[in-house]
Every structure is written in structure tokens, then in C-alpha cells.
Simulated scan of single mutants.
Amino acid sequence: MPDIEQLMDKLGRAGVTVILKVDDERMTEGGKPWTLVMSGPGLGGQGFIRAEAATLDDCLEQGLKRLRAGSGDFEWLAEILVGMGQDD
């Protein structure tokens, strides 16, 4: 798992607003308690990115993969995704 504070700092400096949430009700029900929402001018017109998952790691991975696949200068995410076990 990446250093969350460092990742959020880098995303913020790239013009991305990030909200990360865990929902206790969905956790109790066995659902997908983690939600990641990213928006802002750094997304290059994508509007926003939303990901939901059962684990924090999976939630971050989904969101970061979508961010990297869109427009914008996010090639640096490749190193983070590889560190998360993603073979990009």
C-alpha cells in the first residue's frame, strides 16, 4: 500500500481533489465500505472518478488506474500501481 499522505499530497498538487471514505453500515453488511471520489481540473475534463471496493487497497487501485488511463500527466502513477501489485 502506498504512503497515503504522500499520495494525497501529490494528487492535490496535480489539481485533483480526493475524498476517501469508509462506511460502517456497508462494512457491517459485508458490502463495499470503501469509497474514493476524485474531481478537479487535474482530471483533464473527465468530470470525476468514483471507485468502491471491499478493501482500501482495491479502492485506491481502481481509482488510480482510471485516473492514469484518462487525460492528464499521471504517468507517475505507474510506479505506485506496480507497488500495489498491479502489472501495468
Rank of each mutant, 00 (worst) to 15 (best):
Met1Thr: 03
Pro2Ala: 15
Asp3Gly: 07
Ile4Cys: 06
Ile4Lys: 10
Glu5Gln: 12
Gln6Glu: 13
Leu7Gln: 03
Leu7His: 00
Leu7Asp: 11
Met8Trp: 10
Asp9Gly: 11
Lys10Ser: 12
Leu11Trp: 12
Leu11Asn: 02
Arg13Phe: 08
Arg13Glu: 12
Ala14Thr: 07
Ala14Gly: 10
Gly15His: 02
Val16Lys: 10
Val16Ile: 15
Val18Asn: 03
Ile19Asn: 03
Ile19Phe: 00
Leu20Gln: 12
Leu20Glu: 11
Lys21Ile: 02
Lys21Trp: 14
Val22Met: 13
Asp24Tyr: 07
Arg26Lys: 03
Glu29Cys: 00
Lys32His: 13
Pro33Gly: 08
Pro33Trp: 00
Trp34Cys: 10
Trp34Ala: 05
Leu36Trp: 07
Leu36Arg: 11
Met38His: 05
Ser39Asp: 11
Gly40Phe: 03
Gly40Gln: 01
Pro41Val: 00
Gly42Pro: 13
Gly42Met: 08
Gly44Leu: 00
Gly44Lys: 00
Gly45Ile: 10
Gly47Ala: 02
Ile49Ala: 00
Ile49Gly: 00
Ile49Asn: 03
Arg50Asp: 01
Ala51Ser: 15
Ala54Ile: 09
Leu56Asp: 13
Asp57Lys: 14
Asp57Ile: 14
Leu60Ala: 00
Leu60Gln: 07
Glu61Lys: 10
Glu61Tyr: 06
Glu61Leu: 12
Gly63Lys: 04
Gly63Val: 11
Lys65Met: 15
Arg66Tyr: 08
Leu67Trp: 13
Ala69Phe: 10
Ser71Phe: 07
Ser71Trp: 05
Gly72His: 08
Asp73Met: 12
Asp73Trp: 00
Phe74Leu: 01
Phe74Asp: 01
Trp76Lys: 08
Leu77Asp: 03
Glu79Trp: 04
Glu79Cys: 02
Leu81Ser: 10
Val82Asn: 13
Gly83Ser: 14
Met84Ser: 06
Gly85Glu: 05
Asp88Val: 15
